[in-house]
Amino acid sequence: MENTNDTTGINFILLGLLNYTQIHIFFFSVVLMTFLTSLMSNIFMIMLIRMDSRLCTPMYFLLSQLSLMDVMLVLTVVPKMVGNYLMHIRSISSAGCGAQIFLFVTLEGGECFLLAAMAYDRYVAICHPLRYPILMNQKLCLHMTAGSWLLGGVDGLMQAGVTLSFPYCHSREINHFFCEAPSLVRLACTDTMIFEFFMYICCVLMLLIPVSFILASYGLILITVLRMHSAAARKKAFATCSSHLAVVGFFYGTIIFIYMRPKSYRSVAHDKVVSAFYTIFTPVLNPLIYSVRNKEVKGALRMWLEKYFQ
């Protein structure tokens, strides 16, 4: 039975991702375990980078910011989803909905630009290793990180503000498990075509500009690696970049699937599943990929384990 308070006019209703069947209860357990694993692994990655002096480089500083964004992303979406499911309620206030839109867009947008900054870091490290301390200095690293947060925040503020300014005079049932601007705009009882057009253009820019920069960086990296005479050097360069490329592939693949498909190809059910993948499951993959594929992270982890468990 759903809580009757869900029908209040001041709240939106999140229809959610899961029902109360046996198979969905199993999926809920998987989501909860993935959330806890993501939270602990990303926090541990941040702490490991801060504690180990060998990881005090621009590459790992950017990685710690990626983990911070992932922690905030799962905290933005999953606790409300879990609370509603366990308490058999589906309501969310307008303020809560606006906060979810703002934080979600800020973090997703920030991560787009942060991944581009990480690609530039790899480009400089492999193509200009002798000039790395100059081209990738601490000041530039801080500027790129701050710019990623700022650009994501501006986009999030605009989307949240405009979305909540529309009148919602009919159904307030959002067919999603969290407040996402496209799902909310479908409920507005006014013409939103102009806003949807600008939101689409904004998403294209927020995705394609960083993706183009990443592809250009890795194109130059590939040319440099193929010119290397040492097989060991080529292997090391590919190993260094493969972790970042795996994260980029998971992240951008799901985002582009959600935001850049024509409306005629969209399915609400499919969108919810893909959204669950990049908001719940992708954040747990990032620390796993970087720890498994990175010798320096594995070395720092081994030293930490030996220090505290021997």
Rank of each mutant, 00 (worst) to 15 (best):
D6M: 08
I10D: 15
I13C: 10
L15E: 15
I25V: 11
F27C: 14
V30M: 10
T37L: 14
F44T: 14
D52K: 08
R54G: 06
C56Q: 15
Y60I: 07
S67W: 01
V71L: 01
L73Q: 07
L75Y: 05
V77C: 02
M81Y: 08
H88W: 08
H88F: 09
H88S: 12
S93I: 07
A95L: 15
G96N: 03
G98I: 03
A99E: 09
I101T: 07
F104H: 11
V105Y: 02
T106A: 10
F113N: 02
L115N: 01
L115D: 00
A117D: 01
M118F: 02
M118N: 05
Y120Q: 09
D121Y: 10
Y123R: 12
Y132H: 12
P133L: 08
P133S: 07
C141S: 15
L142R: 15
H143V: 15
G147N: 14
G147Q: 10
S148M: 06
G156F: 05
Q159G: 02
L164G: 05
L164Y: 09
S165N: 11
H170L: 13
N175I: 13
F177S: 06
F178V: 07
E180M: 14
A181W: 06
L184M: 15
L184R: 04
V185S: 02
C189D: 08
T190P: 00
D191Y: 08
M199C: 06
Y200T: 14
C203G: 13
L207R: 09
L208V: 14
F213M: 13
F213S: 14
I214F: 02
Y218K: 01
G219K: 02
I221M: 04
L222W: 12
A231E: 13
A232N: 10
A233S: 11
L245W: 06
A246I: 13
V248D: 00
G249Q: 07
F251K: 09
T254Y: 10
M260N: 12
M260K: 07
P262R: 05
K263W: 08
S264I: 15
V268P: 00
A269M: 10
T279H: 11
L285Y: 04
Y290S: 08
K295D: 14
K295P: 09
E296W: 04
E296I: 08
L305I: 13
E306A: 12
